[in-house]
Simulated assay, not measured.
Amino acid sequence: MTGAAMIVAFSFGLNAQAVRMDMVDVSNNNGYMSTAEYVSMRNEFGVKAVAVKISEGSTYKDPYAASNIANVQAAGLYINGYHFARYATKAQAIAEADFASKTAKADGLPIGAVLATDVESAEEQGNLSQAANDRNNAAFMKEIQKFGYRADIYTSGSWANNKMTIKGKTGWIAGYPYVMAGQKWYTNNNAWQWSGSAHFRISYGGFDVSQLYTDYYTAGQKSTVKPTDKNVVKANSQAANKNTSKPSTSAKWVKETKTYTLKTAVKLRTGVSTSSRAVTILPAGTTVKTDQAIIQGGYRWVRQPRFSGYGYLATGPTSNTLEYVKIGASHAYYTVKSGDSWWSIAQRNGMSMYTLASQNGMSIYSTIYPGQTLELN
């Protein structure tokens, strides 16, 4: 998601100008997330709620949804879900709502949780009128309520009340300013997602974080989740705000001539940021030829030469490091699948598992996850 959120009157004694990390959203892009990671988010950063990606379109099920839901609950946090919308008609909206709700139920999302529709696809909703999007969103939300879930809409600030209607006291809105001090955006909505690259102490990569303005995403109840050290939360919140005040200048592009075959749909963006405009969404199976790569904003990005400039794709978290991309070299890569081990990957590729782990900056005792990319030479 690339969106935003709202603020609730929770009091941790934070600097009044600091934007809070009330809610985090996670998906397959973040890989496996342990209970310990969620506990750290709660205790050290004041996170109260998590929104887990459940599904996309009418066929895609997020493979990490069930484990995320279980681990978030084990950490004592409020749990919600979201569905990435691909619908362009009312019938498609209803079908996707049925699919999302059934998937959410199977993954363990509790009845009464929010199951938001993430409406930001330039390819589908971007080509529709406001009236058409309003009709489709209403149909989706009405349908998921039949399954016992509460409804909301996630979208970007530029689309809110432009591409679709977002009424007051509803909506989860995305907007990323460079300078946070004293600013509170979308205060009339449920939530404001203010960053797509926040970092947590024991978790890899960047995360979407939101400030809540209502208790809609905390089950309509006063939160009973309390951080263990309010001073730590205050310090981390202020550091997070400071870190998003300006773009990083330390990232360096390196040459990487490579052909990717996408395993899932990926947004092709105009810049190296999850808040950059999506030119299009490349479907699974698309072949993408790239010429450079960079670590930035919590993600590993690649650049695709196009007929009129460049497009940019996030290929994974920063843990998919650029350290082993050697300028001018030709490389072979392997994408980890479920059931793989260091030994099985090495055997299939005629190499030692110790060599394989070492050249990827790890040891054979390091855990590898489905979707992770390993260099083979």
Rank of each mutant, 00 (worst) to 15 (best):
T89L: 09
K258H: 12
A4D: 06
V19G: 02
S129W: 12
A5N: 12
A240M: 12
S245V: 02
R135Q: 08
D62R: 13
L262M: 02
D229V: 11
T274W: 10
K61Y: 06
T286P: 05
W172S: 07
K48L: 15
K102I: 13
D22M: 08
S40C: 13
A65K: 07
M362E: 01
T218I: 15
T280I: 10
Y299C: 04
L282Y: 01
I94C: 06
W301N: 02
T367N: 09
T249P: 03
T257G: 11
L313G: 00
K105C: 06
Y260F: 15
G361D: 03
R42M: 10
A113H: 05
A332D: 06
E143M: 03
T287S: 07
A139W: 08
F99L: 14
A265P: 09
N137G: 06
E375V: 15
F307L: 13
N28D: 05
I153S: 04
S223V: 12
W194S: 00
N241H: 06
D22I: 09
G112R: 00
F10Y: 14
V24A: 09
F200P: 01
S237K: 01
S245G: 10
Y64D: 00
A18I: 05
Y299N: 08
A284M: 03
A70W: 11
E375Y: 15
V52N: 07
V72F: 11
S40V: 14
F307E: 04
A70V: 08
N137Y: 08
Q296M: 08
S223H: 11
K234D: 09
D98V: 15
Q238G: 11
T187H: 06
N241C: 13
T261Y: 10
S11W: 04
E143Q: 09
A113P: 05
G112W: 00
H331S: 05
N360V: 02
N189V: 05
L14N: 08
N80D: 01
